[in-house]
Simulated assay, not measured.
Amino acid sequence: MFTGIVEIMGRVTDVSPLDSTSSGGGGFSITIGEAADILVDCHLGDSIAVNGTCLTVTEFDTNSFKIGVAPETLRKTNLGSLKVGQQVNLERAMSAHTRFGGHMVQGHVDGTCTIHSRTEDGNAITFVFQVAEQWAELMTYIVPKGFIALDGTSLTVIDVDDEKRTFSIMMIAYTQTKVVMPQKAVGDEVNFEVDMMGKYTGKGVEAMIKRYLNGEEGEAIIAKAVDRVLAKRAAAGSQ
């Protein structure tokens, strides 16, 4: 679990395919340097969020660490487009005594969105993002003033347009110096993770509705609702 408060920006030093005998377990690996500040208490198998993606440390030294990236992760994130020299957001998994300054972030990226526009607003920047069509159903969980994690950064949603699949955030000057987003241009991909509490709530409501609609209990609830509407109309007509 993470908080969405990026600790440092590391830099990609190597991107390599892996065979089945390597530490990454086959597939794809990334080595990230300039990470000494978050490796002082690192152990093999620890979780570090890279651009908001929870990944397992397979090798490390005092300044860099390696992570393996599975095909499913490549399909859901922007990690497959990383190049040597690029900076990435880094956050260690939260500890029991962490000050909780962001929101509950799992590091399980839901998909990618693209930067639709970026507009200077004083010393802040307003970003508008468009969610890829294959993840359009996730717009349900993106709400004004709600949480969203973008490349692992906890941010507050300003506006949402479900029809256009867009939403916006504003990034203050301080945050701009601490995360990778300001380095990106219109059209670039950004990882997003919607608020996990919204997903759990939506799943529970959906299951409840299905249970009621598939049984006599559901029919009784609908009948009561219809009776209440008819009673209100009858009462209004008699006045």
Rank of each mutant, 00 (worst) to 15 (best):
T175F: 01
M171R: 01
H97K: 14
T13I: 15
F147Y: 14
G52V: 02
W135C: 07
K199I: 03
I38S: 14
K145G: 07
I142W: 11
L55I: 02
L55Q: 04
D151R: 00
V226I: 15
N63H: 12
S22H: 04
L155S: 02
H43P: 04
F147R: 04
K145Y: 11
T156N: 06
N51Y: 00
G215S: 14
P144M: 03
P17V: 02
G237E: 13
L155Y: 01
A96P: 02
K184P: 01
G26V: 00
T21G: 07
D61T: 13
V69Q: 01
A223K: 10
K145N: 12
H97R: 14
G198D: 11
Q87A: 08
C113V: 07
A96K: 13
I5K: 00
R11P: 05
I32C: 10
V88Q: 00
E120Y: 00
K164H: 10
T98V: 04
Y200Q: 12
T114E: 13
G24S: 01
D14E: 14
A49K: 01
K83D: 05
R118E: 03
A124D: 15
S117L: 02
F129V: 04
R233P: 02
I148D: 12
T166M: 11
T77M: 01
D188P: 01
D14T: 09
V88C: 00
